[in-house]
Design a protein around this nucleic acid. Structure first.
Lengths: 158, 158
DNA sequence: ATAGTGAATGTTACAGTATAACAAATGAGA
DNA sequence: TCTCATTTGTTATACTGTAACATTCACTAT
């Protein structure tokens, strides 16, 4: 049982909320959440595990017969630009983001056992980071903070 | 001019120190810094930019005629295990590490302009991170903290 | 109406990254 | 010398991502 399989987590509700918010945001921004893009987002939200592009491709094919790698990568690029998903650099994979309505720094906790990825905002970490790169005279454009280990659920089981 | 091209930075000395330390560490640990591994490490230290595996392959070929992808990836795996290099996840590339004698958390500042990568230990950030994942009940195995932006040199030039 | 425009998707081909699996060589100790 | 573990050679292939051009579609200015 993983963190998000737990009885406390109503995943259907979790997904519906994320998808509804995505639609709302795209509407507000005047960008198109087309069927392909929506399907990819839905597939990413199917679990809280990071999903690989070619896994998505296989899953999309029954829905979009013409799907080829660019189909997926374009959808991923769009979703990423809109802040609806994050790329997990250390896994070459993608996860859904539920904080898309506010710009935010991402910090990802990646469980080696159940493969689930939890996003946290971690203001204190970001504050410490700001001080660190100000010292270095470094001007930040983007951050990727990825922590690998065991999530609380898996930690107690192993 | 990049940060490490500056007159203040004696790169030959910088490399020699890193290579000497690598040899010393491998000796102490009873592991073999073979010619191939040494050459790859030397090539990585040729600059402070992150180097890609296939770039290394091209550069190693004159020295190791039989070099093929596994040649490089095995050397990279060894060097990485020994803490002599770090993988930059967001670039699919590698940089030398000068802090190999002490276990340390890595925080990488990656300049988009000159491509140089600076490693910092950032104890305050790591402290804040500890608190963050303790709150989450998360047991950390490894961290990848990669900040993209402009280094101090490039920031003033642009 | 329709021709032009821009966004999105289709399609082909390929570039770039990484590893599996097995063979051969090397070197140190029984 | 034999044996075992480590390292390297070799072949093949899997996985990840993009370039470039064609087509479709919806909108809108004429």
């Amino acid at each position: 049982m993983t963190l998000h399989d737990s009885p406390k987590h109503n995943h259907k509700h979790c997904v519906n909320t994320a998808l509804a918010m995505a639609q709302q945001l795209c509407l507000e921004r005047g960008v198109q959440l087309t069927p392909i893009r929506y399907q990819v987002l839905e597939l990413i939200w199917a679990s809280h595990k990071a999903v690989k592009a070619y896994e998505l491709l296989e899953q999309v094919k029954p829905l979009q017969m013409a799907a080829k790698p660019p189909t997926i990568y374009r959808a991923l690029e769009f979703l990423s630009e809109q802040g609806l998903i994050h790329r997990v650099e250390s896994l070459n994979a993608f996860i859904g983001c539920r904080c898309s309505n506010a710009p935010h720094e991402q910090l990802l906790l990646i469980c080696k056992n159940c493969q689930e990825v939890e996003e946290r905002t971690a203001p204190k970490v970001m504050q410490a980071l700001s001080e660190e790169f100000n010292d270095a005279g470094f001007i930040v454009h983007s951050k990727a903070i990825e922590i690998h280990g065991l999530c609380s659920q898996c930690a107690v089981q192993l």
